[in-house]
Design a protein around this nucleic acid. Structure first.
Lengths: 168, 168
DNA sequence: CCCATTTGATTGACACGTGAATCATCGCTC
DNA sequence: GAGCGATGATTCACGTGTCAATCAAATGGG
């Protein structure tokens, strides 16, 4: 009788649910990323950076502010910005107030690319993910996610983005 | 009135659910991978390769059979095996029946590393993921995953692995 | 039997991610 | 105002993923 719940191994059913969750997610994410790339020549990372800059004052942010906003390591952002800069999506300028700093600016091309990508991307999210579920399933999914985030000690959903339309 | 359901944009609520799903997943996966790496010096990829070889006849598989089993691109597997071979986890031998082929063999070290990793890994899955939910939530999550897989045109859960204990 | 095609596997070029090391500047203290 | 620790950002080394190109061996049609 005595096997304690917390230290026991997953049952076969639990494992199946875990595997389903994890594997399906991977495929979903790959499909969406592929579609975004195909529609707009943008990666998920590009999209995230462009979204943040689009919503920023003057279409510009300090590098560290941007990193904090999208929750990336600084070195990750640095490398990514290098690639985006080569493609002309953003520009980096020395920072007036702090000579160490770097000011990331959305270029006209970057803004255009982002504008062109957002509607098809949101539609892809709807068609690929949201349309799979009934309304009740969506509710329940949301609750499960909330429970999982609490369990992991995470804040209750990223309020970020905020905009009515820009999502992800 | 006429806006058709399928082509409309996601609502704010839908987007929040999407974002929760995707972001929480990322964090979960990173934590589990970090823990596996910390406990056992293995990456997810390593684990998956070792699991497949452990369950294989004679602890060996043709490279292409292995790739098919774990659903990896051949080139991805090739690179990964190169790194694993350097660490002594697997060995590659020329293939008797087909001189083009390559036979991947689990080494004693590889088997040992896998054996040592599986129990803590499964416990981590339980503690990090499964313990977040009630039984009903788990059911519902399973159903949602099933619905999503169907929507994406995927087969109903990967029956693979099979073993009572080896999961993921 | 020979050659064209297919197939098994590797390689190369690149995008992406992490962590440690580096380096200049900033700002504080004396 | 000289020194020194904290901070902003980049760089390096590496692991990981994709796709196209390569290359040798297998194979089937004439």
């Amino acid at each position: 009788m005595a096997t304690s719940k917390r230290r026991s191994m997953p049952t076969r059913r639990e494992l199946a649910i875990w595997r389903g969750y994890i594997e399906t997610y991977d495929i979903l994410r790959n499909r969406l990323e592929a579609r975004l790339h195909q529609d707009s020549e943008l990666s998920n990372g590009d999209y995230r950076v462009l979204l943040a800059l689009s919503e920023a004052e003057e279409h510009t942010l300090r590098s560290s502010a941007l990193a904090a906003h999208i929750e990336w390591e600084r070195s990750r952002l640095s490398g990514h910005l290098g690639r985006m800069e080569k493609r002309g999506l953003v520009r980096r300028e020395p920072c007036a107030e702090d000579a160490r700093g770097s000011q990331v600016v959305l270029t006209e091309d970057g803004a255009r690319a982002f504008r062109a990508s957002t509607v098809p991307h949101l539609q892809a999210i709807k068609e690929t993910f949201l349309d799979a579920f009934t309304d009740e399933q969506l509710d329940v999914l949301g609750e499960a996610t909330t429970a999982l985030r609490a369990h992991l000690g995470l804040p209750p959903v990223t309020a970020a983005g905020g905009s009515p339309r820009a999502g992800v």
